[in-house]
């Protein structure tokens, strides 16, 4: 057992980190929040070159996957850089279509997966029990909806966005109707698998958001001086940061384990821990930045606002606990 990222996985993470560090992501996030998808799409084109969009797509549909460990590594980096867009949803939709194809319903896979793998088209997805909104439906070429009756629709565009507490997450009610792509037991099974992936990748994103918030906060309290000393030398500040690190560091191996073995209980444990850790980290980051942390202007806000929605997306803590310990 070598329960650490392999050299290849670490190198992939570093290459994404380098790409995103050089890409002015905060500007793209702010544009995305205004409904301007241009800078975001330019960013996705660069990410597509790394093969990132192909990780959830089977090889026979021009993908590289399914590779949940590499995908978890990638989504940790997306979180670290606060990358906007329906990327979890697109990956989960890819898993759904791949699983349907594996069950013998391969029309939708042939039609949609090659472009999803290439990153030339974005998709969003809503599933029963996965949250009511279609994330960033205005940016998606395809909006997939699974109904409570196990029908998979390609939903029409439409509607105005609802404002999220994270303006970079643009929320839409799924439009009823559209084109029925498949129905029945294969849809139910594929949706369950897609839901696990969405939960896993959201957990990975939480981890990256938490790490970024912690790093920014540590840098700030080392610089910021009050009473003639860096505020980071005060024990009340240190101990809060120590507890925050503890939450992140003990969520990380759960996310890794869920990526290696993405069963329902493993994924729920990962999402629960990473979701709680990222929200606690956001609270710490806000508190230790003081008033400047409560401003729109400081880029910290781009991560702060993600924490709570990501904690609750694709499995609230309560839903995850119920999965960990079924009655």
């Amino acid at each position: 057992m070598h329960f650490l990222p392999s050299d290849e996985e670490s190198a992939f993470a570093r290459s994404l980190d380098a790409l995103l560090s050089a890409a002015a992501v905060p500007d793209a996030v702010r544009a995305w929040s205004r409904g301007d998808h241009g800078p975001g799409r330019a960013l996705f084109a660069k990410l597509a070159d790394t093969g990132m969009f192909a990780l959830a797509v089977p090889e026979r549909y021009e993908g590289l996957g399914p590779l949940p460990v590499a995908a978890a590594v990638a989504f940790t980096e997306l979180g670290r850089h606060a990358v906007p867009g329906p990327l979890v949803e697109g990956a989960a939709a890819s898993v759904l279509l791949g699983a349907l194809a594996a069950a013998g319903v391969d029309g939708p896979a042939k039609r949609f997966l090659p472009e999803l793998a290439a990153g030339t088209a974005l998709a969003t997805l809503t599933l029963p029990g996965g949250g009511p909104y279609a994330l960033d439906a205005d940016a998606a070429a395809w909006r997939f909806t699974v109904t409570a009756r196990d029908e998979l629709y390609l939903s029409p565009a439409g509607g105005a966005p609802l404002a999220s507490t994270d303006p970079a997450r643009r929320l839409f009610w799924p439009e009823p109707g559209g084109e029925l792509l498949a129905a029945g037991a294969p849809v139910a099974a594929a949706a369950a698998e897609a839901g696990r992936w969405a939960r896993l990748l959201t957990a990975a994103q939480c981890l990256g958001v938490g790490e970024a918030l912690l790093a920014r906060t540590v840098a700030y309290v080392r610089e910021r001086r009050q009473f003639g000393a860096p505020v980071g030398s005060f024990q009340a500040v240190k101990h809060r940061l120590a507890d925050t690190l503890l939450g992140v560091e003990f969520a990380r191996p759960l996310v890794w384990a869920a990526a290696v073995s993405p069963g329902a209980a493993e994924v729920a444990a990962a999402k629960l821990s990473a979701g709680e850790a990222v929200y606690r980290t956001a609270r710490t980051a806000l508190q230790l930045h003081g008033a400047i942390g409560y401003t729109d202007e400081l880029d910290l806000s781009l991560w702060l606002r993600k924490a709570r929605p990501l904690r609750d997306a694709w499995g609230t803590p309560s839903a995850c606990r119920a999965t960990v310990l079924p009655a």
Partner: peptide, 9 residues
């Protein structure tokens, strides 16, 4: 943890 892992003063 704060001093050696996070590098606080």
């Amino acid at each position: 943890i704060a001093e050696r892992l996070l590098g606080l003063p």
